[in-house]
């Protein structure tokens, strides 16, 4: 099988950039609360955590 890891990392990078920049960010960039926490705060930390998990997954897969 071909080594897909580099391609996956690059795609992850592109998706992450799109998620964390405008215009996508403006959806959550509003004052307000979700589950008693600021909406944007939730968005940032949840997506950030997901991103870390995905990188972790991709790097573990190799071994």
């Amino acid at each position: 099988m071909r080594d897909q890891q580099p391609a996956r990392l690059i795609i992850l990078f592109i998706i992450a950039v799109l998620l964390f920049t405008y215009p996508f960010l403006s959806i959550f960039d509003k004052p307000g609360l979700t589950f008693s926490l600021p909406t944007l705060y939730i968005f940032f930390f949840v997506v950030w955590g997901l991103l870390i998990a995905l990188i972790y997954g991709l790097m573990k897969q190799k071994k």
Partner: peptide, 20 residues
């Protein structure tokens, strides 16, 4: 507000490319 996070999200976004 939350603009301070850019300084930490920048390296995070770049992290997949560290592999290269």
């Amino acid at each position: 507000g939350m603009s301070f996070l850019a300084v930490y999200l920048g390296p995070t976004l770049m992290a997949p490319l560290w592999f290269f």
